[in-house]
């Protein structure tokens, strides 16, 4: 930069060119705003629909802002199906599966990052290749397995596999990258102080990997929260449904009751929306890492 720097310009020209640069950017706002409108529209529409009276729902031309903030749709949704129960079920499944994911993916990633063993690269290749597996090929026979174990219509098929690293490939990859960034000297020092490998994992690797752990927690929580296929297949008793299948069930019962449907959707979406707004940084970092190694 310094070698090729142009002759110093006067302040005014610099400011002028800056302004010109800003003005040149204005046309860029047109596509951005159009795209942003359509990206945000479903959320606005859902939120306004949740508070609309039946007459406002049917109104044409459509009304964006409801006249009042009646909670009738929420009460109706809770009466039609066990909305709050679904919310509880979703929280339970998401929390347990996230704990399982953290347990297995940190152990596995730690081993891949720090321990040498014959077959390590081959196994890591296997980790990466399981990322590509379509769920059907595993779920159809797993269904029979769980049937045989008597696990159908329980939360076990939705949680236990996470403790065994199923669906954790991306997290293992992410955590391994992070662990590799921790200076080896720290582990060396701990080893000399007599810390075993389990203690190195628990007292050095995990505390230092907090940002990565937060990323994994968020991704798995949201993945489990949004999961539709697993609960659809494994749960049959409607009182055990999680929110996605619950809403689908609700939609089947009251096809055109849009107000109540929007209220139920709001309840389902809100926790993830808040997580996203509070911790967007972690989502961005997590996603960006996947592409970096492509």
């Amino acid at each position: 930069m310094t070698a090729t720097a142009p002759a110093p310009r006067s302040r005014t020209t610099l400011r002028l060119s800056l302004t010109r640069g800003r003005i040149a950017l204005v046309p860029l706002y047109v596509p951005l705003c159009i795209a942003a409108f359509f990206f945000i529209l479903p959320f606005v529409w859902m939120l306004s629909g949740a508070f609309k009276e039946p007459s406002e729902i049917a109104a044409y031309p459509p009304q964006f802002i409801p006249d009042g903030l009646g909670t009738g749709n929420f009460t109706e949704a809770a009466a039609g199906v066990s909305l709050w129960r679904y919310l509880g079920n979703s929280v339970l499944v998401a929390v347990v599966s996230t704990v399982g994911t953290l347990f297995c993916s940190t152990l596995t990633a730690f081993a891949f990052a720090y321990l040498r063993a014959p077959g390590r690269n081959l196994l890591f290749g296997l980790v990466l290749s399981t990322m590509m597996l379509p769920p059907f090929i595993i779920l159809i026979p797993s269904y029979s397995l769980y049937q045989w174990l008597g696990w159908l219509d329980t939360y076990l098929p939705l949680t236990v596999p996470h403790f065994l690293g199923v669906g954790c490939a991306f997290y293992i990859f992410l955590l391994r990258q992070f662990f590799l960034g921790i200076p080896r000297e720290l582990f060396e020092a701990a080893r000399i102080d007599g810390a075993g490998r389990l203690r190195q994992y628990w007292q050095i690797a995990l505390p230092l990997a907090k940002p990565a752990l937060v990323t994994v927690t968020l991704f798995q929580f949201v993945a489990s929260w949004n999961d539709f296929f697993g609960p659809l297949i494994f749960l049959t008793d409607s009182s055990k449904f999680t929110l996605p299948v619950g809403i689908r069930f609700f939609q089947g019962l009251y096809t055109t009751d849009y107000g109540a449907l929007m209220a139920a959707s709001c309840v389902s979406v809100l926790p993830v929306l808040l997580l996203f707004l509070v911790a967007q940084r972690f989502f961005v970092q997590g996603i960006a890492t996947t592409g970096g190694k492509g």
Partner: peptide, 24 residues
Amino acid sequence: FFRTVFFLPAIVTGVPMFVVWSWM
């Protein structure tokens, strides 16, 4: 701001949003 808006529907997605889109 725009990055947030464009990234949001990739995370906040699933059956509830499909139901909203059906109505839209």
